[in-house]
């Protein structure tokens, strides 16, 4: 579906991921008695814990196999110093999407206070600047994208948005239009 991502799987990074997945799946499996309830009345096939137990059991086994493969591979060919450094860099690379998701979280917050159109415009222009698309044509493209979003979703499909605090500062006649369209 996509081009190959920039981040290449480093063996130590894969090991870290496998440890994380194995820990989460076995942890969830261990919680089955707390997170689901058994029912004495019904047959075994109706027990609420049955399906989660099957799913988590398979998940835990599959994750442990992956982890075992990673460990065997690293035992057979121990990582070089360079690989270790690359592994740490790769792990830090997991923070990169979190940076963009932080902006995204702020965008969601801003929509509820500043309104959909202003927040979307600022979010798009900021992201374009952040990823290095600073030429005037990209600013224009960002503006075009914001107008497109308003045109299609707010005006065209009538997607409702909560009334933001900012729009309440405007005169009543303008408020109605802003709330309805922007």
């Amino acid at each position: 579906m996509s081009e190959e991502p920039e981040i290449r799987a480093n063996r130590l990074e894969s090991l870290a991921l496998s440890i994380l997945f194995a820990a989460i799946s076995t942890g969830l499996l261990a919680l089955i008695g707390v997170a689901t309830k058994a029912n004495a009345k019904g047959g075994w096939w109706t027990q609420p814990w049955l399906m989660p137990a099957i799913a988590l059991g398979i998940l835990a086994i599959a994750n442990l196999i992956t982890l075992w493969r990673e460990v065997c591979d690293l035992r057979a060919t121990p990582p070089t110093t360079q690989e270790k450094v690359e592994g740490w860099t790769a792990l830090l690379g997991w923070l990169r999407p979190l940076e963009f998701l932080t902006y995204y979280g702020l965008y969601i917050y801003a929509i509820q206070h500043a309104g959909y159109f202003p927040s979307t415009l600022v979010f798009i222009l900021f992201l374009l600047w952040r990823v290095g698309l600073t030429a005037p044509r990209w600013t224009l493209a960002g503006l075009g994208l914001s107008v497109f979003m308003i045109g299609v979703f707010r005006i065209g499909l009538g997607v409702w948005m909560p009334v933001p605090d900012l729009y309440r500062l405007f005169p009543e006649a303008m408020q109605t239009a802003l709330i309805r369209w922007f």
Partner: peptide, 12 residues
């Protein structure tokens, strides 16, 4: 193995 894990995760 990865597909099995992903499928089981979806089932969960």
């Amino acid at each position: 193995v990865e597909a099995t894990a992903a499928l089981a995760f979806g089932l969960f």
